[in-house]
Design a protein around this nucleic acid. Structure first.
Lengths: 208, 208, 208, 208
DNA sequence: AATGAATGAGGGTTCATTCAT
DNA sequence: CATGAATGAACCCTCATTCAT
């Protein structure tokens, strides 16, 4: 029976994924509110009731999608190790950004959802996403504080700057998904980081 | 009758503005979809039908709000004059950012709406806002290109970098409206610009 | 303006009553669950949304109906006054029953609803009705206790007997609404009371 | 094969009974409409489809339950034999009531269902129950008529009084299942009958 | 015989918009 | 001009029933 059960479970997972995919695309295209259950089930090719066999509510699908995405992002962001034997921080940074980048670019609908979910600001899930970004921002801020303490980072308001850095990455991503051309992830990651580290002015001029 | 007419028109404008204000706050607080006409008219203190005497639809109010905001932003963004007699570019830049900053901070609801309007991505107004930002982005990109051509800006992908700069400013604003404390606009503008120009790394280290 | 307002309010009340009447009939005919909003509005001749202009929910109409009915019954049930100058108790009793009887028979749908509302036993309104009957039962029980204490009523379990008396009245009413013929209310009230007081056996036989 | 078949049939009956029991409890607790198939099968410990192997529909289970109950009641109600050699009528009456009483009290869910089935008044089963009670009522009415003809029962409207008697028994039962205390069935049966026969007033007073 | 995933009609409710007053 | 009662399409969700396995 184990075999039959396994097969059934696989089929179930498959269905669940189909619904998630259909919902994700629609949420990305039209926002949470405008995407109706009717459209989701039409795109998923299932009946009305079937939807509720896999998810308790419209909110629940949305939550599943975002929760998964946030989790996937979370695991791709690894605190930089500054120990002796560790790889150079610059490389670690690049790897972090590259991982996030390649994940997001593998799923354009998702990035859309994360960057511009059309949820009421006071909705639980909106706050969940916000708190994720706040968490990342804190991570950046504390890195900046550390950098300042060791004289690597120039004196600045860590929180504000962290918000800017995160914003610049979001802006970069926005641009990348909209521009249809493909590109080298590592290369782009370098550019994103370079901007945050050195800005746009040529170094020589900053000296004068 | 000209006088009476003028008075009538003034009253009309006044009403219109009251509705716009009520709607703006609500849209900012709860997003476009969740803010209902019922709430708007309650807050504006008018009857249901009256609303439709001033605006053709819910979309129309939203459009008016954003259109006005975009216009206000537009006029505050002035291309940097690089002529001999003009003020130093750095100052002009700071003034641009300061103007935008002080306008947005004078109306937190508005900034909320612009940065995170809860509109379906495929809605006309959402595209209108996007195109505004795209316009600003192009402005930045062409500035960067010019800067590169005169050796002021280091070589980089102008479009991507422009997206990052815009993103960093948006990120900074997001942070500023959320942080409740007040601050000096010119000072903050400097920080926003400094980040975009020089990044976070101390200049000395970039030399080695 | 008072006149216009008064007229508007009268119209509003009229509408509300129409809906209540339509709903009451349907609830009586088909029970709470089976009576759908669709049917109610069809019978009331109004649009879907209009219903919700007058009642917050399906539950709310039902509650309004029952609450009103219970109130009307309540005011018709007056504790028997045993003071010297008061009318004879038997007459008071008859008047009580007559009042209740004539009210209920004026609205057959209502009596149906009260006697057999098809609500889940754990529903708030079902409990509301139950508690009304419990209240009446207590009234009867305490009358019986008093009657026993003064030797007017034979010794018996007051609560159980009260339940029987109430049941006999409910049973009588059930019969009366179902039997289509009209009748003299006071006469029937006498019969209802006589049964409760003396039962069915001829008095002479009880002596032996 | 007869043995195997018999065993299979026994198992089938067992299953059927399990479903009936689960359904009966749920119907009693939550009413017909609010009790869902999902809950029934969960309580019965069977799969969704299995339910429909034993019953054609939700209505069908309900029907089975009531039909059985009505049958059980029916067989417990035996017309009073007034022949010479028969036991005294009073005793026969008491035995009838006692039998019904003890059956109903052995299954509180059932009594709940019979006294207050939450079925739409126009549903076939509701009418079935009603017609059962109508039948009992007729039985009582004809007994009353006979009693009147032999001078045992005082003159009254036989139908109305029958309805009251039945009502008083129903009221008494309602009270008994709700009161949690246990009691002597024969004793209570006596009280129920005494009330119907003699009412509540002490006999002496009726003479005056 | 038993399963449980799938179905879809129908439920109650909301809300942008219209129009008679 | 202003009002607010009226509208009805569209929404999310439930649940009795079916059917392939």
């Amino acid at each position: 029976m184990t075999k039959a059960e396994a097969k059934a479970e696989a089929k179930r997972d498959q269905r669940r994924r189909e619904i998630l995919d259909a919902a994700k695309d629609l949420f990305a295209e039209r926002g949470f509110h405008s995407a109706s259950i009717s459209e989701i089930i039409k795109r998923a090719g299932i009946a009305r009731g079937t939807f509720y066999l896999y998810f308790n509510s419209k909110d629940a699908v949305f939550e599943s999608i975002l929760e998964l995405a946030i989790h996937e992002l979370q695991v791709r962001i690894i605190g930089v190790d500054v120990d002796e034997g560790a790889p150079p921080p610059a490389l670690q940074l690049n790897q972090n950004v590259s991982r996030v980048l390649s994940y997001m670019l593998s799923d354009r609908a998702l990035i859309q959802l994360i960057l511009a979910h059309g949820l009421p600001p006071d909705a639980p899930m909106a706050m969940r996403v916000d708190s994720f970004f706040a968490h990342v921002e804190e991570l950046i801020a504390s890195s900046l504080s550390y950098g300042m303490s060791v004289g690597l980072v120039r004196q600045c308001d860590a929180s504000l700057t962290a918000a800017q850095i995160l914003g610049s990455v979001r802006g970069g991503m926005r641009y990348l998904i909209q521009a249809q051309e493909s590109f080298d992830v590592t290369e782009v990651a370098s550019q994103l980081i370079d901007f945050a580290l050195h800005g746009v002015i040529v170094s020589d001029l900053t000296r004068s």
